[in-house]
Amino acid sequence: MSWARSGDRSGIRSTMVRRRLLSAVTVLIGVVTVAFAVVHLIPGDPVQTMLGTGGAFVDPAQEAALRHELRLDRSLPDQYFAFLASAARGDFGTSFQTGEPVTRLIAEAAPASLSLAGAALLLGALIGTAIAVLSRLTDSRVLGSVLAVLPVLAMSLPAYWVAAVLLQFFSFRLGLVPALGGTGIRGLILPALTMSLPTAGVVAQVLASGLRAAEHESYVLMARAKGATRARVVWRHMLRNTALPAITLTGTTVGSLLGAAVVTETIFGRPGLGRLIITSLNAHDYPVIQGVAAVLGATMILISLLVDLLFTYLDPRVVSTAVWR
């Protein structure tokens, strides 16, 4: 890799980061606008929903006062620009339900979700890689076909089913981990495993097909000719070359990971952003929904940016071919 001057590459890299950041801001504004629009498109009025059938007890003057207190008596464009202006300062307003700042609610829920998503990604990558490598190394026909089916299974099993089965077996039957309120690693294992499966499936499939294709590449033949063992060839040479598409796809599974978080966090009774958004949706808690959507949107944008950056380190061609100029 000595042919590319490193100074050049970092220059290109910073241009790329600048451009991507600029477009990220545009995308983010789009995301919060869509979140605002969707929230206001949900049928039903938040005040009436909050009051529920109990609304029958509340006199109209009180209802109007509540509407005013929540600033829902303003015009829609008025609400939108007020929302954008404060969101730009990192202020998403206060929750309709509790009156607490949305940023505080998100800050409280985020660490649990982040550790869960992080653990799920890591676990998914490990399991996926293990399946792919094992399927390449094994000589057993039976094991080979089992390993070929596993990724499809992992991707298609619904999270609520996986969670129920895992709980049933490891918690209710064996009593190894608590079903509810578990803290630390013990509480993280089952939910992370539940959420890791789609990622594991994607990684395993992409890696396995990459490894299969690389089998006849000249560098593999070269390594074999030099006397490297099969395992060493797979680990040292083939994996690095086939990792790129797997990493990109892992990045894209983050989106579905957040979807799975809603189900997983609910079943395992864990706090987190998924739980926060689903309870806020049910309660028509506009500020919280908008805040969480904005934060999730920003996270997705950040992750795709990181994946692109990671690419430039793993594959120098990305920078040298000046895709980002």
Binding site: L167, Q168, S171, R173, G175, P178, L180, I267, G269
Partner: peptide, 21 residues
């Protein structure tokens, strides 16, 4: 008294059966 929040019906009854609550 610990009021543990478990929205899933199966998890609640499973927790009782397995002696966790």
């Amino acid at each position: 008294v610990v009021l543990s929040i478990a929205p899933d019906n199966g998890v609640r009854s499973g927790s009782l059966r397995s002696g966790q609550v």
